[in-house]
Design a protein around this nucleic acid. Structure first.
Length: 111
RNA sequence: UGAGUAAGUCAGAUGAUCGCCGGUACAAAACCGCAAGGUUGUACGGGAGGAAAGUCCGAGCUCCGUAGGGCAGGGUGCCGGGUAACACCCGGUGGAGGCAACUCUAAGGCAAGUGCAACAGAAAGCAAACCGCCACCAAAAUGCUUUGCAUUUUGGCGGUAAGGAUGAAACGGUGAGGUAAGAGCUCACCAGCGGAUAGGUAACUAUUCGGCUAGGUAAACCCCACCUGGAGCAAGACCAAGAACGGACACAAAAAGGCAACUGCCCGUUGCUGUCCAAUGGUAGGUCGCAUGAGUUUACUGGCGACAGUAAACCUAGAUAGAUGAUCAUCUAAUACAGAACUCGGCUUAUAGAUUUACUCACAUA
RNA sequence: CGAGGUGUAGCGCAGUUUGGUAGCGCACAUGGUUUGGGACCAUGGGGCCGAAGGUUCGAAUCCUUUCACCUCGA
């Protein structure tokens, strides 16, 4: 199992500027091709979602959803997920299906 | 059985798979970084709370110039005890509430001084009198038994604070005597003040005597007693790397003056300092601080209790964008408030549900 | 994590020290002025002073607790 690789603040800004975006009720995705043979993942949870414990739980849920479905995804992209308000009341199942839905819509799932 | 009071306990459990954080042992000598340093794999065992919260108090610890004296400022405030300390806790006293179990209580001093009380009311502390009540004097009117007496009205000069009206509050309260009318003027009871005696470490309580009166407000200034230097782990220490340390004028030194993380002022004390110009570093480096402590559990002893002492056993999170989650199964009442960030002792606030013990009242039965 | 500050009308602010009437500007409504509008003039409405307790006869103000928001500290 590969470790989940993150990136620095400058890369975040670049992806927000140049990446493609798409959203559903719980999540927003930004992604851009990075020219590498692995994916890099970033997660943003706003202060509006709750205090630090709630935010961290949301981060873990997203990370877990990504990790367990890692092998199904196309490699070579930088991906950012943004949590929208309301996600803090959702269960793991809902988060996972929302994430899969976004990946499928953007053709990042391997056949 | 119902209603209630007080003190506690628990805060899902077990198993399986995957994942996160750090510890120990072994392995590897590869990777990242200029360096200080960090990273990897396997095995073993560990990993949030009763409030971890609010940051409202108190301490340890660290630095600030020595941590000194006085004033100011701030805090506490019935009494005694506990504690490292406290605004906390325990036991008691007074007051308030409740049928009761019991609960609540910032509860020193307005008889040191100053201030305040809108509106209303005559008057809101210092003795005064608006409507009143009463005596005396004068005038007028009326009546009668006509040198006079009685009643009423008006004016004057006094006595009084019973009654009325206002207000949150009106100069002790109620009753009786007393008086021209009244008044602690006198008496009884009650409240309050001062003294004595007895009990108690004390707050205070009980009894008794005295003089009859001293308004409220100190979470108003203030007085009294006691306490109090400031900032905070982003405190602070070490390591690594990098940058700068220049010029002009004046010049013996000292003094004076100035500057200095310490809320204000004064004194004392320490260090630096001739003036001007120019220039420079930094906000994502690493390690420690950082988990053995006023520690936890059990037993015994002392104490009404808070707590203290002795002995034995135990080691129980330590991150630095910040660790506890996901899925399945079984049991179940299990769904609340909520997540350590230097560490303790308290307080306050939030909180689903389950459960234990003691006690009070009401009803029923025996 | 620590330290500090602010909550008053739709918006921006006074008033809190020293407790008794809640005020100012803009905005809003009505009327006047103008051919009409703007500007201007006059009048008016709108507040349980962030929330809950306490002290007091009486609290925006004093005390305690609590909830939001903002600023600063390597």
């Amino acid at each position: 199992m590969d470790k989940i690789i993150s990136f620095n603040n400058r890369t975040f800004q670049n992806i927000f500027k140049s990446g493609k975006s798409y959203g559903n009720k719980l999540l927003v995705i930004y992604y851009v091709s990075n020219g590498l043979d692995y994916n890099r993942l970033g997660i943003t949870v706003s202060k509006k979602n709750g205090n630090s414990v709630v935010r961290h739980r949301v981060k873990r849920l997203i990370k877990e959803s990504y990790r367990l479905n890692d092998k199904k995804f196309v490699k070579g992209y930088d991906i950012i997920f943004i949590a929208r308000v309301g996600i803090e009341n959702s269960s793991y199942c809902e988060v996972q299906s929302a994430l899969k839905h976004l990946m499928k819509k953007n053709n990042l799932l391997e056949k």
